[in-house]
Design a protein around this nucleic acid. Structure first.
Length: 586
RNA sequence: GCCUCCGUAGCUCAGAGGAUAGAGCAGUUGCCUUCUAAGCAACUGGCCACAGGUUCGAUUCCUGUCGGGGGCACCA
């Protein structure tokens, strides 16, 4: 990459300056930063190296810069000129040839343009969403789903081996599953035409029943108090009716509830799976918590913690010394006085299992409400002898849902959640995905449902897709006119001298660095901003540099078409990381 | 009380310790007989919450204050 070449030239220049006695930095170690400056008047790349070396050299920044510049190979090869500016920035102006080379490289590498092997050897497991099997995937889960999926793509693009995993809490506290089963059983009866008595809330979270019996069978079917009243269970019940008809209608309430307690979680999981696929997210593994218990791994983990001296008995329970192993503020219960293990035991065993499967980097994406749990899990991992630094927790901040300017209150138990699938149906997969990665996960975002549903140009995903479609349109038009696309390697690239052409080329040249930065900083949202910048540069180029007009010389035309093609490739590659469709036409 | 994230334009948000703090939306105004106007151009809009500190340099890092979100279980 270009920055690597410049970095090495700079390093050589510093060494040469020292050897020549121009610069004495006293053996000080230094990093070389090279960035495209915000203002293009400051050149193609700028370095603050001289400012950093002020202190060790005892010289003013501008003086340091001048002495380094003296030893740079200016005029030969890459560098056209270097200007010392401000307090001592070195601004590099490169020969246009390097930009023109980029054009050929993009076309040659095609789908591989922007990939790197900087993360080769990493085996990463990203666990995300992991919603309890008691409700549908919600809009709030969507943010984690998008972050995890895009991050996986980014890491893969940089050469890592990545696996995506969904952890199913199917060994939940049994009353939750009981309620789920009862709720589903009642919905089943409702599907068969029975009258259900749904309680009303009186504002003090007290359920009030009307007591009406069923007109069909004369029995009384109350919807369970603290059940799951969401419409999604009715959908699953409908599905069950299609499969088994009235087979469960005649059972006693107790038998029926037991039957549906078995059916409910798998029905829920299947629905979650469908919704996530509609969102374009496919997991490599759906990992069942229960499988850990079945394989005896939870008990084995607890024994191991005991053997290592990190677990102790107190007040009839078994405690983990989380305070000794992490920054946790108090020790946590591992096994309750009732002999039932807590989730910490299961999760520690789960993460041991991840390591044992050969992964050397674990990333967990959780909602910010889990933040108090970070240190506990790290303690659990450490108590089993693993490096807890290899286990990273990413906490996505909440999304505040707003509808008609009013915050939408949610919660699985109320059934008032907004299912992700609803959003997908209304705005489409692409907009739903793009919206969810529009800003940093560290920010509590306001998600305006009305705006997201609006299919208009306010929607930023359209701008990105339009950029691709416009490039495609020009290329399509040229093909219709019988103009063949000349390979970029053969085109007269040096004819691309217009300011807008060079601006666009600079943007395209930044792409590999942007992809790497987005991966390194776990910041996929950078790509949504960056694709807008490419789009902007492309539209400006389009406005000012016609390719297919009669008065354009064939060589210029071919070079411009080549630039459209390169832009198309970069935008397509970027959208593919985001999992957003690159449209041929709007 | 403790932990954590946030506070940047009217609104939603970017800003990897650098030079004159940026986008989109909203508002005002131009540009389609011309490769897609889902576009482009111009204008308007800021004590980067506040106070200290570190630094050649702080919107960015540290401390504190104020304001907002989210957590602080033998629930997950």
């Amino acid at each position: 990459m270009i920055t690597e070449q410049l970095t090495s030239l700079l390093r050589d220049a510093v060494a040469a300056a020292q050897a020549a006695g121009d610069l004495n930095i006293d053996g000080q170690a230094y990093d070389i930063a090279l960035d495209p400056p915000k203002q293009k008047q400051f050149g193609d790349f700028a370095s603050n190296l001289a400012l950093i070396l002020q202190k060790p050299s005892g010289l003013q920044g501008r003086e340091v810069a001048a002495r380094i510049v003296k030893h740079l190979p200016i005029g030969q090869g890459l560098i056209d000129r270097v200007e010392v500016a401000g307090p001592g920035f070195m601004n590099f102006y490169l020969k246009p040839a390097w930009l023109h080379e980029t054009l050929a490289r993009i076309e040659e590498q095609d789908a591989a343009y922007g990939t790197s092997d900087s993360r080769r050897g990493e085996k990463t497991l990203i666990e995300f969403v992991s919603a309890n099997p008691t409700g549908p995937i919600s809009v709030v889960n969507g943010r984690a789903a998008m972050l995890g999926d895009t991050l996986a793509n980014l890491l893969k693009t940089n050469g890592a081996e990545v696996s995506k995993e969904f952890y199913i809490n199917d060994a939940l506290n049994s009353t939750q599953i009981d309620k789920l089963g009862e709720s589903l059983a009642t919905r089943y009866l409702e599907q068969l035409g029975h009258n259900i008595d749904f309680p009303e809330e009186d504002g003090e979270s007290k359920a009030i029943y009307s007591g009406q019996t069923c007109k069909q069978c004369g029995r009384y079917h109350p919807f369970p108090e603290d059940g799951y009243p969401g419409q999604y269970l009715a959908d699953i019940a409908h599905q069950i009716v299609l499969e088994v008809g009235t087979n469960y209608e005649g059972l006693s309430d107790v038998e029926r509830n037991a039957t549906f307690r078995e059916l409910a979680p798998s029905g829920m999981i299947a629905q979650q799976q469908r919704d996530l696929e509609a969102f374009g997210v496919q997991f490599d593994t759906w990992f069942y918590e229960s499988s850990l218990y079945e394989a005896g791994k939870v008990h084995a983990a607890i024994d191991e913690m005991k053997a290592r001296g990190y677990a102790y008995e107190k007040e009839g329970a078994l405690w983990l010394k989380t305070t000794a192993l992490s920054k946790d503020e108090k020790d946590r219960v591992l096994v309750r006085s009732t002999d039932k293990e807590t989730y910490i035991a299961a999760d520690a065993a789960y993460h041991k299992d991840k390591f044992d499967r050969g992964f050397n980097r674990l990333i967990n994406i959780w909602g910010a409400d889990h933040h108090g749990y970070v240190e506990r899990l790290k303690a659990g991992v450490a108590a089993l002898g693993y490096d807890s630094d290899k286990c990273e927790m990413i906490l996505t901040q909440m999304i505040l849902l707003v509808r008609n300017g009013e915050p939408v209150r949610g919660g699985k138990r109320t059934g008032n959640i907004i299912p992700l699938i609803e959003l997908i149906k209304e705005v489409g997969k692409d907009a739903a995905r793009f919206y969810n990665v529009l800003n940093s996960y560290e920010t509590t975002a306001v998600f305006d449902l009305d705006l997201a549903k609006k299919q208009s140009s306010d929607n930023p995903v359209w701008y990105a897709q339009y950029a691709h479609a416009r490039c495609s349109a020009v290329l399509r038009k040229s093909a219709e006119k019988g103009v063949a696309l000349v390979p970029a390697a053969q085109v007269k690239r040096e004819l691309l001298t217009h300011e807008k052409e060079l601006d666009l080329l600079r943007k395209l040249a930044d792409y590999p660095a942007e992809v790497k930065a987005a991966a390194d900083l776990i910041a996929p949202h950078r790509l949504t901003g960056y694709v807008r910048e490419i789009g902007q540069a492309m539209h400006q180029f389009y406005e000012e540099c016609p390719a297919l007009r009669e008065d354009v010389l064939p060589d210029v035309r071919d070079a411009r078409l080549s630039l459209f093609n390169a832009t198309r490739i970069v935008v397509r590659n970027l959208l593919s990381i985001l999992g957003v469709t690159a449209l041929e036409q709007m």
